[in-house]
């Protein structure tokens, strides 16, 4: 049985705004080929103001598809079309206090139905540009389609790189075989021998002694700050954040904030940032929670 939140269950058992909408002047029909779910979103838009006066849905799908549809109609009622276009699938998931990773595509389908309905109202043609693949990393809800496109765009060749670019495989590690499978398929199609372990040496190569000019203390601190700054958007996307508290020799003390705080993947997050620091600084450093600063003193 899925681990649905109370809010998901509530919106499934008592869906809001279900059924056809009298006087609707826009509708969007979308489906997910991956799981076979389908959704029709109907809107009643006030022409002068473009305010969504009413919304309803009809959904062929599982519990979370119905709950996501219900949540979507509740979120967008009263918004203008432009405001509604800013609603992301994460907003829908958040409204429901979260969805299981396997079910995030239900919220994606909701957002697409919204885009399709608004395009329909404006007489535009809506083209679905997103692809869905097999769910690979359950910890971060990353599917094969995303991994494939990132691997191709960035010419990735190793599992470690895939983890750095997409986070996939960065937590429990049980999907590593599947990630390697995706990599092997792409590399084979590019007629390159899959280099599962070799490029790992390349990643380490910049560390070789003498290759990097030694940084002054100030340069080093700035560099660390720069690297930490570069990972912040990634954490902020997951409603978290990070700040540097102090740098003592090889130890860099940080505070994880927001959703990162107490997250089950805290250690994995620190680990991957530490790896990034290690590679870019060219020296071994430890990234530690600021709470350990006291003990160190």
């Amino acid at each position: 049985m899925w681990d649905y939140t109370e809010k998901v269950k509530e919106h499934f058992f008592n869906p809001r705004n279900a059924g056809p909408l009298e006087g609707a002047n826009a509708s969007g029909d979308v489906g997910s080929i991956q799981c076979g779910d389908a959704l029709r979103l109907m809107l009643k838009v006030e022409p002068e103001t473009e305010i969504i006066l009413d919304a309803s849905f009809q959904t062929f799908g599982c519990g979370s598809a119905i709950a996501s549809s219900s949540a979507l109609t509740e979120i967008i009622k009263g918004m203008t079309l432009d405001e509604a276009l800013k609603v992301s699938n994460q907003n829908i998931a958040d409204f429901l206090d979260g969805l299981p990773p396997e079910k995030m595509h239900c919220s994606v389908m909701g957002r697409e139905a919204l885009q399709a309905a608004i395009a329909n109202y404006r007489g535009e043609e809506w083209v679905d540009d997103h692809e869905e693949g097999e769910l690979i990393c359950k910890c971060y809800a990353i599917d094969s389609a995303l991994i494939e496109s990132v691997v191709r765009e960035n010419k990735l060749t190793t599992l470690e790189q895939v983890t750095h670019y997409t986070k996939a495989g960065g937590a429990c590690a049980s999907c590593h075989e599947k990630i390697e499978g995706v990599l092997e398929k792409i590399l084979a199609s590019q007629c390159e021998a899959p280099a599962i372990s070799k490029p790992a040496e390349e990643a380490v190569a910049p560390l070789a002694a003498g290759e990097k000019p030694k940084l002054t203390n100030i340069q080093r601190m700035r560099k660390i700050e720069e690297i930490i700054e570069s990972v912040r958007p990634m954490l902020q996307r997951d409603h978290g954040d990070i700040e540097i508290v102090d740098i003592v020799g090889k130890n860099i003390y940080v505070n994880l904030k927001g959703a990162c705080m107490g997250c089950a993947l805290e250690a994995a997050t620190l680990g991957s940032i530490q790896q990034k620091l290690f590679e870019e600084l060219g020296e071994y450093v430890r990234l530690l929670p600021a709470s350990q600063l006291e003990m160190a003193r």
Binding site: V30, G31, I33, Q34, D128, H130, E131
Partner: peptide
């Protein structure tokens, strides 16, 4: 009328 959604 057959419902024919746009599939992702």
């Amino acid at each position: 009328q057959a419902f024919a959604p746009a599939y992702a």
